[in-house]
Nucleic acid binder design. Structure first.
Lengths: 336, 336
DNA sequence: TTGTAGGCGTTATCAA
DNA sequence: TTGATAACGCCTACAA
């Protein structure tokens, strides 16, 4: 079965291909009865415009790339939902790229992005280097980084939709200072090192302002639940938990919870626990884990919206490509 | 900055564009010194072949579409990893489509898949109808369905990589029959209705063979953890739990666990619990929840591998497009 | 309002 | 071994 092209439709409707093109693209210069004739021909033949040919002709693919690390799938689901929904609304297709240690390096991904001639790119934090952004920039591909704040850069067409983790940590620590508590520890998450850095910076700043120094950054090898639990389980047999423990991901929070309880401490009496990233699993524990309500879906939605604006070169975003999203601390069972 | 084309490279290397095309595509008819000259020109200009133009010329995009429902994203992470890794190995790009109730219906997704001229499609179960597969088939787009077994169909180019949930349930129930236990209930998962159907079919068959009838299919509105827990919490206040409860997803298993314990029952003594889908959260509960070790990554990897074979029309898969994957029951704390 | 023709960047077929 | 040249399917001036 031969693939139907615009020529076939033109012949069927007895018009030129230009006219068919016009009705496809909703040009308003075409007379009503010929439009109908063309529409009928399209129906009859089951014609679908070839997006590839359109892309070539227009030098525009209406496609944007999303690149994220394989390991982060499970955690970025909501953000992705936001990205996808908004992309759909603006009729963009999505090319999806993942990076993983062995099989696909960021460098290859960039290569295929450039070849694909996508109109724009969404990057997740902790997944790329400045160098790679510069390459994309050389090829004039607009991009927006979603997640945390990127460090100052002179690269041109870059947007950033983020949570201010530095401030988040700073404020949280100060709240505990006010209650007279300064025995605080932060559990490292190796999957989100740039976020960790920002959290730590916020804590450091808060401590520094009180003339103190923060030194309970808990770091250990590997980073799944099991290794976290094993490490912490040991740890809390020899060290009593801090008055406040801050973790980034759910599995770490649950590891702290289980390890503490196993070591005979009870939450929140002996130890309060705050997890940065919120998800449903934190409501399945007992007690439920206090966490931040981060607008993940909106992070994605806003990022994609920003990108679409950048793609039409909307002047309204010219100097407004940094968007900080808000969040709310949700007190649950592991804090007083 | 003008985009570099094959012409620019040809001029720079002082050859014709045909020759450039040859070195790009590793044709072995080009003399070594001119190949080097061309390579240098490519380097110097930073030329990257335009995949869109290639797609047009070859009527082949080296791109496959993956379509899954937004809600299932979190659960299909591993499968997606498998899909992405293998796609990467065979140099396929991925177009990613999600379906959701409001914003993007399957019908629109199909439409954009056809327009995109992707070479093949991966479909997840419980996300499409036979009708939509027929449309893809009309446009001669090979597809493979991953997840559970699809019902018999005469549609041509369709592969299927699946878990045999019917058999899984049948075997499990029989195992309990052998222990003299026939008080079994199955908790419905509205997100995976076709899987539920198959599980139920397996249970029904086992019961029928014993001349009994299965009637503890627990169904309730909505399907997040909270609604599950609330429903079950009530339920177990008025009904004692079955000797064996089977759930599909983690959050339902945890809901059963928490609800039972809250109602004063203890697992596995009063009630055994088996969750079909395994994930890390089932090892964070106490006791850990018994579940099946399903080769999710392999499901994805095998599915994508099958699709790539179908795309080159490999005769080796002509009559071998149904692949059943195995699984293992992992006894943990909620079974004896 | 409609049609003609050139261009988008490659690949592939033929000649040379 | 290399170079013209015609597709690939569509869009868009420009002309009619």
């Amino acid at each position: 079965m031969k693939r139907i092209t615009i020529y076939d439709v033109a012949k069927e409707a007895d018009v030129s291909l230009a006219t068919v093109s016009r009705v496809i693209n909703d040009s308003n210069v075409v007379r009503e009865d010929t439009r109908i004739r063309v529409q009928e021909a399209i129906e009859k033949l089951g014609y679908k415009p070839n997006a590839i040919a359109q892309g070539l002709a227009l030098s525009k693919t209406t496609t944007v790339s999303i690149v994220m690390s394989e390991k982060m799938f499970a955690y970025n689901g909501k953000i992705l939902n936001g990205l996808m929904d908004v992309a759909k609304i603006y009729n963009y297709n999505i090319m999806f790229h993942t990076t993983s240690k062995g099989i696909s390096k960021m460098q290859d991904v960039i290569e295929s992005i450039i070849k694909s001639r996508v109109d724009g790119v969404i990057l997740f934090n902790d997944n790329f280097s400045l160098e790679e952004m510069e390459v994309l920039n050389e090829y004039q591909i607009p991009m927006v980084v979603v997640g945390s704040k990127i460090t100052e850069t002179k690269i041109g067409n870059v947007g950033n939709v983020y949570i201010n983790f530095e401030k988040m940590a700073y404020d949280l620590v100060n709240k505990y200072f006010e209650r007279g508590i300064d025995d605080i520890s932060l559990v490292e998450d190796k999957l989100n090192l740039s976020m960790m850095e920002q959290l730590k910076a916020g804590i450091d700043r808060a401590y520094a302002e009180k003339g103190k120094v923060f030194n309970k950054y808990i770091s250990y090898d590997d980073n799944n639940y099991k290794s976290s639990f094993n490490f912490l389980s040991d740890y809390y047999k020899n060290n009593r938990p801090s008055k406040l423990v801050i973790t980034f991901r759910d599995s770490q929070a649950i590891a702290v919870l289980n390890a503490c309880q196993e070591a005979g401490y009870s939450l929140p009496e002996d130890c309060e626990l705050v997890c940065v990233l919120n998800n449903k699993y934190l409501t399945m524990t007992r007690p439920n884990v206090t966490s931040y309500n981060i607008p993940e879906y909106d992070l994605g939605a806003v990022a994609m919206r920003l990108l679409t604006k950048m793609l039409v070169d909307d002047d309204s975003v010219k100097d407004n490509k940094d968007i900080e999203m808000s969040y709310v601390l949700m007190s649950k069972g592991t804090t007083k």
